[in-house]
C-alpha cells in the first residue's frame, strides 16, 4: 500500500480488500500469543481453553424483517464462539449512539438483545455506552465481545476425528482432509436479501426474512454426533469468502456444485435482479460444516431434525487434486470462485 491509499468501503465489504488490509496492517500486532491467536485469523482466539472473540455491528436499516441490530450483535458473537467449538457463556456490550436517536428504538434493541441472549443461554455481564454528535455515525454501532469454555461435546467430536486424522484440539481449518463433505445448514443469502430489500423498499422482504439466530445449540448437536472437522458461519463475503479461507488455510481444494446449494426462489430472483452472486451473499444464521464422510448421514439427520437445519444439504467436498475453490455450475462447466471484490467487477464483454 502506498501513502496515497485510503480506506474505502471496499475494504469493509469482506473479501479480498479486507483480507489484504488485515494481513498487511493488523497482523503486525501478532506476537504469537494464545493456543489459537491472531495469526490463525479464525472466528476467535483460544487462551487456556477459553474462547474469546469480538465483533462490531452496523446495519442499515437497524430493524429488518426477521431481526434487528440487537439480535444480530448477540448472534454474531455467540456464533463466532460456537464455530470454534466453544460454549458461549458471557458477553460484553458496547454501544455507540448518534445524537437524536429515539429512546424507544433503543429500548426495542435492548429487549431484542435480552431475548436473543436467553435463547442462546448467554449472559450480558458488562457494558459501555457512548453518545456522539449527529452525523458522526449512522444511528448506532454495537460491539459485543464474548467468552466461552470448551464445549463438552467437542472432546467427543475430536475423538471421532482421530479415527481418520490427527486433529487439532479445536474446530479449525487445519482439520480438513480430502474427502470431507461440505454441508450448509440451510438456505443461503436470506439475510443479505432481506436487508437489501428492506433498505431499498423493493418488496422481497414480504417473502424473505433474515436468518439471524444463535447457532450454538445446533453446533453442539452435531458435535455430539461427531466427525465434524470444522464449522464456520458465512457472514460478510458469504460462501465465497469462507470457502477460500478454508482452502487457503488447509492448503486443500474445495469443489462445490451450484445445483446442490439451497437457495430460496425469492432470494435467487432478487439477487439476479440486483446482479449479485449468491455465493457472496452474507448470512447470520447459517453454518458451513466440514464433516468426515462416514458421519455425513448422521450429521444431516441431526440437522434435519431441528427447524434451523431443515434445509441442510451437502454442497461439495474437500479435494486434494485441485487448488482453490471450484464451482460446478448448473449449466455445465466449472469456474474458480474468488474472494469477493466488494462491488462486482464486470467481466462480460
Amino acid at each position: 500500500m502506498s501513502s496515497k491509499d485510503i480506506i474505502t468501503l471496499l475494504h469493509g465489504a469482506g473479501g479480498s480488500y479486507m483480507h489484504n488490509l488485515i494481513k498487511q496492517i493488523f497482523m503486525t500486532l501478532d506476537d504469537n500469543f494464545g493456543d489459537i491467536g491472531l495469526q490463525m485469523l479464525d472466528d476467535g482466539a483460544v487462551i487456556n481453553n477459553v474462547v474469546f472473540t469480538t465483533d462490531s455491528f452496523i446495519v442499515r436499516p437497524i430493524f429488518f424483517k426477521g431481526g434487528d441490530i440487537g439480535r444480530l450483535s448477540v448472534s454474531g458473537t455467540v456464533n463466532d464462539i460456537a464455530m470454534m467449538g466453544g460454549d458461549p457463556v458471557a458477553l460484553s456490550l458496547g454501544v455507540v449512539i448518534e445524537e437524536g436517536f429515539p429512546i424507544h428504538d433503543l429500548e426495542k434493541i435492548v429487549n431484542s438483545i435480552k431475548n436473543t441472549a436467553l435463547e442462546a443461554g448467554v449472559h450480558i455481564v458488562t457494558g459501555d455506552t457512548k453518545v456522539m454528535e449527529k452525523g458522526s455515525l449512522d444511528k448506532i454501532i454495537i460491539n459485543t465481545s464474548g467468552i466461552g469454555f470448551r464445549s463438552k461435546q467437542l472432546d467427543h467430536d475430536i475423538e471421532t476425528l482421530r479415527k481418520t486424522r490427527e486433529p487439532k484440539e479445536w474446530l479449525v481449518p487445519l482439520n480438513l482432509r480430502p474427502g470431507d463433505k461440505i454441508i450448509v445448514s440451510g438456505t443461503i443469502g436470506d439475510h443479505a436479501i432481506a436487508i437489501l430489500s428492506s433498505r431499498e423498499g423493493i418488496g422481497f422482504e414480504a417473502n424473505v426474512s433474515s436468518d439471524v439466530a444463535p447457532l450454538n445449540k445446533l453446533i453442539n448437536g452435531i458435535l455430539e454426533i461427531g466427525g465434524v472437522a470444522d464449522a464456520k458461519d458465512p457472514t460478510r463475503g458469504g460462501l465465497a469468502d469462507l470457502l477460500n479461507d478454508w482452502s487457503e488455510k488447509s492448503k486443500l481444494g474445495i469443489y462445490i456444485r451450484e445445483e446442490d446449494i439451497p437457495v430460496k426462489d425469492e432470494v435467487r430472483a432478487a439477487s439476479e435482479f440486483m446482479g449479485m452472486d449468491i455465493l457472496e451473499l452474507g448470512n447470520e444464521g447459517k453454518a458451513v460444516i466440514a464433516v468426515s464422510p462416514e458421519y455425513v448421514k448422521d450429521v444431516l439427520n441431526e440437522l434435519w431434525s431441528i427447524p434451523q437445519g431443515k434445509d441442510a444439504s451437502v454442497i461439495g467436498e474437500v479435494r486434494k487434486d485441485i487448488e482453490g475453490v471450484i464451482l460446478e455450475t448448473s449449466i455445465g462447466g466449472k469456474r474458480y470462485v474468488g474472494r469477493p471484490l466488494g462491488d462486482p467487477v464486470p467481466r462480460i464483454c
Binding site: 439476479e272 435482479f273 440486483m274 446482479g275 449479485m276 462491488d343 462486482p344 467487477v345 464486470p346 467481466r347 462480460i348 464483454c349
Partner: peptide
C-alpha cells in the same frame, strides 16, 4: 450507471 455489473450485459 452500471448497477449490478454483468447482469446488464445479459
Amino acid at each position: 450507471p452500471y448497477p449490478g455489473g454483468d447482469i446488464n450485459a445479459l
